[in-house]
């Protein structure tokens, strides 16, 4: 008994607060225990966006409509960039909907530390809960915009017969899931770096804007000529966007190799992101 209790005394600590933890010391159990907090954050985001704004959801609809119209006007009518046989409105609509989810999530999660410094300075909870909650609350806006797309899409499928979906449409939740993880991974890496080196944030804002032009939001991948295609393909979003459209429109490209590449890229980036985020979260309050 004495041996046992001595052992208990020296080993059985629930929490160790120290300067260095190993990089793999990541407490999933704790994260799970705080799942209610995640739901509270999501609820808060939704309530604060919709309370006192009757037009709240309407703005979400107007945004992709106007953007699609702008794209149509500039890239289709003026620059004459074809969207293949897919009606350009439909093409732009799904492009902007997916892209705005990706960039919104990236933008909001990349400010996790700076935006929440006051809360983080006062109370402990697994910091990853916050970017996770932003990913989930962002999905609400995405679903509203996606419903708009679906309505237009149904019109083109059943009335105009302009596009024919195929069975790959069933895989779209998977592509969406990878896009979600990718934006989260980028976001938490950026927020980890920018707590200390603030000027990076300008670079990032600029970078995200440019990245849109290397993603098939406006130009379908098969419209890009040979040697330049690789610049699109190394962008992990490209194959995901293409596969998304492939299911809905029955055209575009579906390339297992590049999809595997995107999934692998996302996984590696996410693990790296969680490690660096975990490292920064312990100290950032001293540097912010």
């Amino acid at each position: 008994m004495t041996d046992k209790s001595a052992n208990y005394d020296s080993e059985n600590w629930d929490i160790r607060i120290a300067a260095h933890r190993s990089v793999v010391d990541f407490n999933f159990k704790e994260l799970w225990r705080y799942r209610d907090l995640l739901m509270m954050f999501v609820k808060k985001d939704i309530i604060t966006v919709y309370k006192q704004t009757i037009l709240g959801p309407i703005w979400f609809i107007i945004q992709p409509v106007l953007t699609s119209f702008m794209f149509f006007f500039i890239f289709n009518s003026i620059a004459k960039i074809s969207t293949g046989t897919v009606p350009s409105v439909l093409f732009y609509l799904i492009g902007t909907t997916l892209w705005s989810y990706f960039s919104d999530t990236l933008n909001i999660t990349s400010k996790t530390f700076t935006d929440n410094a006051s809360v983080f300075g006062k109370v402990y909870f697994p910091r990853l809960i916050l970017p996770f909650s932003k990913v989930v609350s962002g999905l609400v806006k995405f679903l509203i915009q996606f419903s708009l797309f679906l309505a237009v899409w149904l019109y083109y499928v059943f009335i105009e017969h302009a596009v024919t979906p195929n069975w790959y449409i069933l895989l779209t939740p998977l592509w969406l899931f990878i896009i979600v993880l990718l934006s989260l991974a980028f976001g938490i890496i950026i927020t980890s770096l920018t707590t200390k080196y603030r000027d990076l944030i300008f670079l990032i804002g600029f970078g995200v804007q440019l990245a849109m032009y290397l993603t098939p939001v406006i130009i379908p991948l098969d419209q890009v000529s040979g040697s330049k295609k690789i610049f699109f393909q190394i962008n992990p979003l490209t194959s995901l966007f293409e596969a998304f459209k492939y299911g809905f429109f029955g055209q575009g490209s579906f390339e297992p190799f590049w999809l595997m590449y995107s999934a692998g890229f996302t996984l590696v980036l996410l693990i790296f992101g969680i490690i660096i985020f975990n490292k920064v979260e312990k100290r950032f309050i001293d540097t912010v």
Partner: peptide, 27 residues
């Protein structure tokens, strides 16, 4: 102690759940 930051050196070991009130109405 509240795990808002970490020590530069040394360690604090804790048994049980900690809740800290450094401010009322956080969040």
């Amino acid at each position: 102690l509240s795990r808002v930051t970490t020590p530069t050196k040394g360690e604090i070991k804790v048994r049980g759940r900690i809740a800290s009130l450094l401010e009322v109405g956080t969040g």
